[in-house]
Amino acid sequence: MIEAKHIEKSFFLTKAKEGRFASLRTLFSREQREVKAVHDISFSIDRGEFVGYIGPNGAGKSTTIKMLAGILHPSQGEIRIGGYSPQRERIQVASQIGVVFGQRTQLWWDLPVRDSFEILQAMYKINDKAYRRSMEAYQELLDLHEFLDTPVRKLSLGQRMRADLAAALLHDPPVLFLDEPTIGLDVVAKTRIRAFLKEVNQTQKKTILLTTHDMDDIEQLCNRIIVINHGKKMMDTSLVDLRRQIGLPSLIRIEFRQPPEKLYDLEGIKRMELAENVLSIYFDKGKISSPRILAEVAGWGEPLDIQMKEPGIEEIIRLIYR
């Protein structure tokens, strides 16, 4: 469904001039610096896969998605979406894909949500029957009716994201590109978006490529993970394999009134560190739940404060390198 062969993207950054006629002098300047945002990346994604595309900031995630979506032209290499090239056959590819950028809405800012949907219907030439069918399905799954007549600028972030998702799916594209769809959302909104994405992936067999910084997104949604760093592919593996290789450790940090006298080992706990009266427990969420740990640890002393930390993407990169 999605095919990328040895794609590269280099940017030539011209050093911007300052002062009088800056733009003209910049145009004719020869001082250029080549930056390789994406370097020889290949992958192939089948229909119905849910792939997490992860890496630290500036790794080239967005650049890759933008090349797949036909926004940017790769400097080298070939891309196929459903058999079409996003560069040479952009229009065909556009009707095959739905794109959501978490940071920026695709909706008409000052108009009611409904108006955006109607404009998109005309733009994608969706016939009335299919349009009604999509609207009914997504209204139910995303509760759109709550804010269908509200101007987009007045929506909460969570509502806006729901509207954006429905808008991206309106023309029933087989492929979805989601760039940080849960960024900035609260837990409730995140859970809701995830449930929706899972549903769409499983019942409609949509192929989804998702970038995120949230490891919960990855754990709950993706069955495959591609890790990139500095524009290069570092790893392409299933979630199960990733967990086996590096374990995706979650962290609980507990501050006790008195340092506990004895630490007991539990199934699923990978490592414990005690510094004065603060105990750090690294554990595998797949094997033991945090409430189990807390229940257990409460017997070791009197907890004053509890902090939970999910492994960040940087942590994972570090573990892969190790």
Binding site: K66, I71, A94, I97, F101, R104, Q106, Y124
Partner: peptide, 10 residues
């Protein structure tokens, strides 16, 4: 901002 114009089939 051109991003959002380039993903449309128009």
């Amino acid at each position: 901002e051109l991003d959002q114009l380039l993903i449309r089939p128009v």
